[in-house]
Design a protein around this nucleic acid. Structure first.
Length: 603
RNA sequence: GGGGCCGUAGCUCAAUUGGAUAGAGCAUCGGACUGUCGAUCCGAAGGUUGAGGGUUCGAGCCCCUUCGGCCUCGCCA
């Protein structure tokens, strides 16, 4: 076998005259009867091969048989392309390889789709033939960015004295949080492991174990429905540190992010990054992961709306709800846009309607046009205009409902409008830390408190007393990092005192018995000299999505799963042998029905 | 669990109001060709319209069921 001396993307004009061997896939071939050209591709790029029937009849004859995606190796001389024959589209376009010897390493069936037009090919087919899809330069580039980031992360933490430590995948199930993936135990009948949703407790125990600085690039599993940016199986950069406060953790990681952005995109991210309180974020943006690339903040107009004659507004405010709105600049939206598209859009988030008014300047005065006009006196209109600092041609959009629904509907509407109106630079990145989260949120359905982050998040020191009196008002030492409206990481200082942890469990209505069963091992560990500690986890997949400019998480995972959790390449999940189930002491519903059927038949 | 979009040749798409033998580009196969680079030119082959059922004289198109893909609400401590 011919052994390659170079890759297909590296040869340049200065290599002319060298004798080299290349290997790769036939990307395309152009047979002129006389000369044959083949573009040879590997992960580094393309190099044009030339086969000349006069000087190398054997190689030329063989080259005529080569087809797309055949695997070949070629030996020959690098030659400068003659004038006018250069290909400026290729980095190697100044040269070509004059082939003296061609070896066909493998043939290929006609590929299921053309590599060059894969961008238009259905993702279903790309996933089913991932081996072909992965050959595409774009996919190779994404895999490379992912590798480079992982390497950078490891180097960064290594230099700071962190240890990468593996934690178990076969772990204990905890009913809190997302649905667990379960793994039946063969040795312990009727018992199950759970795949970790995150190594949360293990990393905290590492701190108690004196590790001091831990990180891990680790797979996590959550059995929930996937989304464009969410996969049941995903990767976290997981970190934990001892003897630190929030600012320490934030500092270490904004520098890491700045480093990644510099190295991968050559973009300078300013550190320290801006911070925004949870409360402010909810007020101004209606979400704890605001896109701060553009302004267009939400404004509460409940006080003005209740004085209007619009029944929807007045009755909502009377019932304790709120009226909030945004002011979209420009004249892009027609009435039917609003009433069909935008109203439908907010309806998905539970809003019952979308009230609107356009603004027009008449005689030097800004006035409502259409929509809400007749319900608002000129006086009230003026107040609203002032609050939004609205201008001629702007459009006001309002949702009236409970605070929760209003924010839920307006936050995505704000982003959608900004995108439609092109209010920001698509290539910019705006980072913001969200801090001062409440420790709990009240769960209306269950009539109890839930953790906003997780039950191990430490309360702010001065709010400790409020745990007894006013739990809803207790702030946590948690922090999320958000970029362009996407949460890429989050963490907290943890509770390191058993008594506080127990108190939090009490407030979460986790009984002593439950707590012992689920977290007993951890509560015990806290009693043996747990140091103050805290950490963070980043979603690696989402980082790579941002860095590679894709909105599809499957693009940054070599072997992703579909929305129904299937791997189209391997066809997982699949039924298993009855023998396998027997060994695990398991029966599926289907088996049970079959058994019932048999018993009934006998009767 | 709910909502939406989609499924026609290997790939990407077309097919008027339900109307005759379901078309095109690319790929494939055969041929031609002295430098191409998305080569070009000539020719050929290629179809269970995702699957099943229904309405109709007649279905790619309408209706029902079902499978699959994507987006999304719920869910994701």
């Amino acid at each position: 076998m011919l052994k390659r001396t170079h890759t297909c993307g590296r040869l340049r004009l200065e290599d002319a005259g060298k004798k080299v061997t290349l290997a790769g896939w036939a990307h395309s071939y152009r047979d002129h009867g006389n000369l044959v050209f083949i573009d040879l591709r590997d992960k580094e790029g393309l190099t044009q091969l030339v086969f000349n029937p006069v000087t190398q009849p054997n190689a030329h004859k063989l080259a005529k048989t080569v087809r797309c995606e055949w695997v070949i190796a070629v030996k020959g001389m690098i030659q400068q392309r003659s004038e006018g024959m250069e290909n400026p589209k290729l980095p190697t376009g100044q040269i070509e390889l004059v082939v003296e010897q061609l070896e066909i390493l493998n043939v290929s069936k006609t590929p299921p789709f053309e590599i060059d037009s894969a961008e238009k090919t259905s993702e279903e087919l790309r996933l089913a033939s991932r081996y072909v899809d992965l050959r595409r330069p774009q996919m190779q580039a994404r895999l490379r960015v992912r590798h480079r980031v992982a390497k950078l992360v490891r180097d960064y933490f290594d230099r700071l004295g962190f240890l990468e430590i593996e934690t178990p995948f076969l772990a204990k199930s905890t009913p809190e949080g997302a649905r667990d993936f379960l793994v039946p135990s063969r040795l312990q009948k009727d018992c199950f492991y759970a795949l970790p949703q995150s190594p949360q407790l293990f990393k905290q125990i590492l701190m108690i174990g004196g590790v001091d600085k831990y990180f891990q690039i680790v797979r996590c599993f959550r059995d929930e429905d996937p989304r464009a940016d969410r996969q049941a199986e995903f990767t976290q950069i997981d970190v934990e540190m001892s003897f630190v406060d929030s600012n320490d953790v934030i500092g270490v990681h904004e520098n890491l992010i700045a480093k990644i952005w510099k190295q991968i995109l050559d973009i300078d991210v300013k550190a320290p990054m801006t911070r925004l309180s949870y409360k402010q974020a909810m007020t101004d943006y209606g979400t704890d992961r605001p896109d701060v690339r553009f302004d267009m903040k939400l404004k509460d107009i409940s006080d003005i709306a209740k004085k209007s004659s619009f029944k929807v507004f007045t009755s909502v405010v009377e019932k304790g709800g709120i009226v909030k709105g945004i002011c979209a600049p420009g004249k892009k939206h027609s009435r039917s846009d609003i009433e069909k598209t935008l109203t439908g859009f907010v309806a998905d988030y539970g809003a019952k309607g979308l009230a609107w008014a356009k603004l027009k300047e008449e005689n030097g005065k800004l006035e409502f046009v259409g929509g809400l006009k007749k319900f608002f006196s000129p006086e009230l209109q003026k107040k609203i205009v002032k609050r939004f600092k609205a201008k001629d041609g702007d459009m006001l959009l309002f949702v009236a409902d409970s605070q929760k629904i209003v924010n839920k509907a307006l936050a995505p509407l704000r982003c959608k409008l900004a995108k439609d109106l092109k209010l920001y630079d698509q290539n910019s990145f705006e980072f913001v830390w969200i801090v001062d989260f409440p420790l709990f949120e009240f769960n209306e359905d269950e009539k109890r408190y839930d953790s906003l982050h997780h039950p191990f998040t430490a309360p702010v020191q001065e709010d400790l007393e409020k745990l007894e009196t006013d739990p809803a008002d207790v702030r946590s030492q948690a922090y999320d990092i958000v970029v362009n409206g996407s949460e890429i990481g989050g963490g907290s200082i943890r509770i390191h005192k058993m008594k506080v942890q127990q108190k939090v469990f009490d407030l979460l209505s986790i009984s002593r018995k439950q707590a012992q069963q689920q977290f007993g091992f951890f509560l015990k560990a806290l009693e043996y000299g747990a140091p103050p500690h805290g950490g963070i986890a980043f979603g690696l997949d989402r980082l790579i999505m941002l860095l590679t400019g894709t909105e599809n998480i499957r693009d940054v995972i070599a072997f992703p799963k579909t929305q129904r959790g299937q791997c189209l390449l391997t066809d997982a999940p699949s039924p298993v042998d009855k023998k396998q189930l027997d060994e695990l002491n398991l029966r599926t519903q289907r088996h049970l029905h079959a058994i019932e059927q048999k018993t009934n038949d006998k009767k």
